[in-house]
Simulated scan of single mutants.
Amino acid sequence: MLQTITDWINNIAHAGEGEDKYGSDDPKLSVAAILVHVIAVDGVVTDDEKRRLREVLASNYGLTAEETEQLVEEATVREDDAVDLYSFTSVLKRELDDAGRHKVVESMWEIVFADGEVSEFEDNVVWRVAELIGISTRDRMTLRHKIEAKTKGES
Rank of each mutant, 00 (worst) to 15 (best):
K28L: 11
K28I: 08
K28N: 11
L29N: 02
S30G: 12
S30W: 02
S30I: 08
S30T: 08
S30A: 15
S30Q: 08
V31A: 10
A32M: 02
A32P: 02
A33S: 15
I34P: 00
L35S: 07
L35Y: 08
V36D: 06
V36T: 11
V36Q: 08
H37T: 13
H37L: 13
V38C: 08
V38T: 11
I39Q: 15
I39G: 00
I39Y: 14
I39M: 15
I39D: 10
A40I: 00
A40C: 12
A40M: 12
V41F: 10
V41G: 03
D42G: 09
D42Q: 07
G43V: 07
V44H: 12
V44S: 13
V44W: 09
V44K: 13
V44C: 06
V45P: 02
V45I: 14
T46R: 04
D47P: 08
D47L: 12
D48L: 14
E49T: 14
E49Q: 15
E49G: 07
K50M: 09
R51S: 14
R51T: 15
R52Q: 14
R52I: 13
L53N: 06
L53G: 01
R54T: 09
E55Y: 10
E55H: 13
V56Y: 04
V56I: 14
V56L: 04
L57A: 04
L57K: 02
L57M: 09
L57P: 01
L57W: 07
A58F: 00
A58C: 00
S59F: 07
Y61R: 05
G62Q: 01
G62R: 03
